[in-house]
Design a protein around this nucleic acid. Structure first.
Lengths: 226, 226
DNA sequence: TCAATGCTTCGGCTACGGTCGAAGTATGAA
DNA sequence: TTCATACTTCGACCGTAGCCGAAGCATTGA
C-alpha cells in the first residue's frame, strides 16, 4: 500500500527539535553559518554539523562555502512552503498554545517568510497589487501583468535580472497566522529587499520580525494601501 | 529564539514510518478501523493502537466509536494539506524515487485527496468550474458564484445541507504530483460523491485511485471539459 | 452465561539516533 | 611558520521510543 512518496523520511528530519530550530531559523531567509545555527538549535557545533549534513543530503538546505565559513540557506520555496504548512497545523491543532507574547504580535504584523514579506503587511501588499492590477491570480499561479512590470521597474526593481533567474517571478504563499495568501517568488523577495533599501523597513536582528519605519508605513499605505 | 509554533512535535509524529503509513492510508478519506490501519502500517494491533492514541491526542485524526469498532478519519483539511505539502517535498527533493509503477500513473490521473478529487481530473474539474464562472478565485479563497450555486443544485448536490456545515464550501488544495490547485472543501467533497452516485467513477478498493467509466469520462468532458 | 471479536494496557526487550568530548582537517591571519 | 578560527570525524554513552507477547476490558451475539 505504499502510495505516493515517502513522507516519513522528510518528516522525521523535521521532527527532531534541534533540526526544527535550524530550519525555523533559516526561514528568516538569511544565510547562517554552522556556528550560528548551532546556537539557534541549542546544541554543540559537532551535533549541529551532523544535523546539517543530514538536512543537506535530503536537499532541504543548501550550503555555500566562503573562506572558512559555510553559509546555509533553505533548500527552496517548496521547503519553506511545507514548513509553513506544518506551522499552521502546529498553531491550530496544537494543544498547548505557548503564551502569545508581544513578539508574536509583531510577527503577525510583519515578518519575513523564507525571503519575502509575510504577516498582515504581506497580505496587504498582495491585496494592493491585486487591486491595482499589478498581478492577476489564475488557478494556482500568480502572473505579473504589464502594468505590474512597469511599476516594478519604477519602484527600482531590476526586473531583467529577476527574469534571468529560473525561479518563478510570482508565487502565492500561504500564511500560518492569518491563513491568507501573500506574494512569494523572486518578485516578492525583490520587493522586500527594495523596501529595506529605501528605508521603509528594517529587520530586527536575530528574529523574523520586520519593523516598518513611520515614513515607510506612510509610503506603504500610499503605494499599496486600499 | 522560539518563534512561531513548535513544528517538531507534529513533524515527529509524521516522521515515524508506521504513523506515516496510517496517515497516508487515511488520505483516502475513508474511515478505517484500528485493525485495518494496523495492516496498512505493517504493525501489530497493539502497536497501531499506541500510534493512533498519539495521533488522536495531537488532533491529527478523529475517531468515532460504532459498536465494537473504532473508525478513524483524518483530523481535518489542514492535516491533509500539510501532508500533501510534505509529499510534494518528498517527491521533488526525494533522492530515491521509488519505482514509478502503473499504479502511480493511475494516481496521477485521478485520485482521492482526503475526500475530494485530485490529480489531473481534479485540476481539470477546477479549471472547468473557473472558466464557466461557477467559482471565482480571489486571494486565497475560492468563492462559489450564484451561477455555480444553481449548477450545483441542478447537478444533484444538496447545497443547503452543505451550508449548514461549518466547513468552508470551497477551498483550494495544492496537488503534489502536478503542483496545481484543485477544489477542496465541502463542495469538492460533494461533487466527488455525486459523480460516484451517478456512476461516472468508482473507487478502486484499498487505494486512492479513482477510475472513471467511459460513460463518466464523456459526461465529465461535457460538463467540465475545456 | 459463555464465547468471539475488537481494542487497550502492561512489561520488558531492543535498537536507533541524538549528544558531547576529543582529536583531526582546512582556511586565514600574524 | 605558528597560531587561531571554523568545521568535521570518531567513538562512546545514554535515553527514548518503537515493537511485540500476554493479559485485561468491552461490546456483541448465541
Amino acid at each position: 500500500m505504499k502510495e505516493g512518496p515517502d513522507i516519513s523520511r522528510i518528516a522525521a528530519l523535521i521532527g527532531d527539535p534541534a533540526r526544527a530550530n535550524i530550519l525555523t531559523a533559516l526561514m528568516s531567509g538569511k544565510a547562517l553559518t554552522a556556528t550560528e545555527l548551532a546556537g539557534e538549535a541549542g546544541v554543540t557545533l559537532q551535533t549541529a554539523s551532523a544535523h546539517l549534513g543530514k538536512l543537506e543530503a535530503a536537499e532541504m538546505i543548501h550550503c555555500r562555502k566562503s573562506g572558512r565559513h559555510k553559509y546555509f540557506t533553505l533548500g527552496g520555496d517548496d521547503v519553506g512552503h511545507a514548513l509553513e504548512a506544518l506551522m499552521g497545523l502546529a498553531a491550530g491543532a496544537g494543544h498547548l498554545r505557548t503564551r502569545t507574547g508581544p513578539k508574536d504580535a509583531a510577527l503577525r504584523e510583519a515578518r519575513v517568510c523564507y525571503n519575502h514579506l509575510a504577516g498582515e503587511k504581506g497580505i496587504a501588499l498582495f491585496q494592493g497589487m491585486l487591486s491595482r492590477g499589478f498581478v492577476s491570480e489564475t488557478d494556482e499561479d500568480v502572473i505579473l501583468t504589464d502594468t505590474g512590470a512597469k511599476f516594478l521597474i519604477s519602484f527600482g526593481v531590476d526586473l531583467k535580472a529577476l527574469k534571468r533567474n529560473k525561479t518563478p517571478l510570482c508565487r502565492p504563499c500561504l500564511d500560518w497566522s492569518a491563513r491568507r495568501t501573500h506574494l512569494a517568488g523572486s518578485v516578492g523577495r525583490a520587493l522586500l529587499t527594495q523596501m529595506q533599501e529605501m528605508g521603509w523597513a528594517n529587520r530586527i536582528e536575530g528574529t523574523r520580525v520586520v519593523k516598518f519605519t513611520s515614513k515607510g508605513e506612510a509610503a506603504f499605505q500610499q503605494e499599496f494601501g486600499t
